[in-house]
Nucleic acid binder design. Structure first.
Length: 507
RNA sequence: GCCGCGUUGGUCAAGGGGUUAAGACGCCUCCCUUUCACGGAGGAAUCACGGGUUCGAUUCCCGUACGUGGUACCA
């Protein structure tokens, strides 16, 4: 019996992979690697009504982009498969029946309507959500209230039923969370959760326990939203006789909306203008497409770094960590208890750090697709020079186009007003004349061009300072970008002449 | 409603019985730059509240408030 660390990420394939989900993956991954353990991907597809085509493949794609690929998964296989819960369906019934036989669970025959009726009839102001629990179960139709022969008959007839856990009365159930320490709950406050559904599929509660056991999971990370049902899981480990093999729990804090209240949702991203998913997700039903951090121009290293720091730090002032460094330094005791609001500005700052860390050559293949989206074909050596010139002003990969499109196309918008203010005949004449003599410039470099420009300004009795901004606007379209003469050198004599004349005609 | 969990500047956060309470993002000012950005120098801004314990609490304890999660045949 080895005690090798084994962790798992267990998403339901129901849609886009959310920031919080990726962070859960990341902490799992870091913990596993830090301890030389295994990282397992298990697909929790027990809710057939929520099945979404393509969602599973999408998860693999996201993990790969993030560089957090699992050691075992439905795709990769492994010694504890299958890794898709729908394919493990037959396994679970046995354990549910075992619990019934032991008296820790029971059959329930109540229809959805009957449940609804119970809830609405028992509902009061002080108890708005009546539960199926020790107080109400004896009024319901289950193997606790129906005599044995009749239960057998119902079962034999194939009557629809579920199996529910029989929560004990008056017990305090406690466990130690790696992040939060000792946590206690009263068994009276938890309802008799359904373990096995009418369709024969397990619920999360049963499946997570059975699979974590069978897959020899040693440490279980999950979101804080699971804390209230943890007592059910603890009890299940105990009732099934596996208590000694129970993993250590760690309930991760939530990632919250930057403004307002509540946990971050995909709607917030749309509302506030930032992605929430790792990669683009297209909802097949609604045709709705939501871009992810990838499409928004984030580097996966930066994305990972951002997530790592949202709820964890190593006590030093260091904020930029490579994956390897994170693996080396990550410990759960440094994970926060409180939720963190997501800050998109800081996220962009991180990405900028990574853009600056990369060489121009490394950036080239990353930037290129984002440029080609705009329909331009660019030679690599030319793009390389553009990258060198604009990278310091790019926070996102998408910014390279915003900051450098004028290297490839004529400015689509022109801040003509910025020139008009102090414009006069003399300047008009100056630019017209300057453009005409461009052929005489000895060599087409930023340096000689600038000398040439200065000379002409002096000859015309104008100050260079009054002319620089107009020239920039003519070439770029706005008040931004690298040095004007660097730009002029790059785009060439013809383009400079053309752009200047186009603007001159408008003044 | 009930139950769980949480709470250091606007945000991420270090710290943890005695500190000028780090650092980063963002914001503001200045320098560099005849643009923007990068870089540099500054600045404003924080221990939710009330009781204890203590010579001394941001730090420990208890309340309150607030936030957040759960309260499904969803995960």
């Amino acid at each position: 019996m080895s005690n090798k660390v084994r962790v798992r990420f267990a998403p339901s394939p129901t849609g886009g992979l959310h920031l919080g989900g990726v962070r859960t993956v990341l902490y799992n991954y870091l913990f596993a690697r830090h301890h030389g353990g295994d990282f397992v991907l298990r697909i929790e597809d027990t809710d057939q009504s929520r099945y979404v085509a393509g969602a599973e493949q999408y998860i693999y794609d996201c993990l790969e982009w993030c560089g957090l690929s699992p050691d075992e998964s439905p795709l990769k296989g492994g010694p504890y498969g299958p890794y898709r819960q729908s394919e493990r369906k037959e396994l679970y019934r046995k354990y549910a029946e075992q619990l019934v036989a032991q008296g820790n669970a029971y059959y329930a025959f109540d229809t959805p309507e009957e449940l609804e009726q119970m809830r609405s009839s028992l509902k009061t102001d002080t108890n708005p959500t009546p539960q199926y629990d020790s107080k109400t179960r004896m009024q319901m139709r289950n193997s606790l209230t129906i005599d044995e022969a009749e239960v057998k008959e119902l079962l034999d007839k194939g009557t629809a039923h579920v199996i529910r856990i029989k929560m004990p009365a008056g017990e305090t159930i406690s466990f130690t969370d790696m992040i939060r320490g000792e946590i206690s709950n009263s068994s009276d406050l938890v309802d008799d959760k359904v373990l096995l559904k009418a369709d024969g599929m397990p619920t999360y509660h049963l499946a997570v326990v059975v699979d974590d056991y069978l897959m020899k999971i040693t440490h279980a990370f999950r979101g804080e939203e699971w804390l209230p049902s943890a007592p059910v899981h603890i009890l299940l480990w105990r009732y099934l006789g596996w208590q000694d093999a129970m993993p250590q729990w760690a309930h991760l804090p939530l990632i919250l909306k930057p403004d307002g209240h509540g946990k971050l949702s995909k709607r917030d991203g749309q509302r506030l203008g930032f992605p929430v998913f790792a990669m683009r997700w297209k909802d097949a039903a609604t045709e709705e497409v939501l871009d992810g951090f990838k499409e928004q121009g984030f580097l996966p290293e930066a994305f990972i770094n951002i997530l790592a720091m949202l709820g964890w730090n190593d006590t030093t002032e260091q904020e930029v960590f490579s994956l390897d460094e994170l693996v080396q330094k990550f410990t759960i005791d440094r994970v926060h208890k409180g939720g963190a609001k997501f800050d998109y500005d800081k996220a962009k700052w991180y990405n900028h750090q990574y853009i600056m860390k990369k060489t121009d050559a490394e950036l080239l293949p990353l930037v290129k697709p984002f440029m080609e989206e705009h329909g331009v074909q660019i030679a690599d050596d030319y793009l390389l020079r553009v990258i060198a010139l604009v990278k310091e002003r790019c926070h996102l990969l998408t910014d390279f186009w915003l900051q450098g499109h004028f290297f490839f196309i004529e400015p689509p918008t022109m801040d003509i007003e910025a020139i008009k203010g102090k414009w006069n005949e003399q300047k008009q004449a100056f630019f017209a004349g300057w453009v005409q003599q461009l052929d005489t410039v000895a060599e087409w470099t930023a340096h000689t061009l600038e000398d040439n420009f200065n000379q002409h300004a002096t000859d015309a009795g104008l100050k260079k300072g009054e002319l620089m901004l107009p020239l920039r606007i003519m070439l770029v379209g706005g008040k931004y970008g690298p040095g004007v003469f660097d730009i002029a050198e790059m785009i060439g004599k013809e383009a400079v002449g053309k752009r200047v004349n186009v603007v001159l005609a408008q003044l």
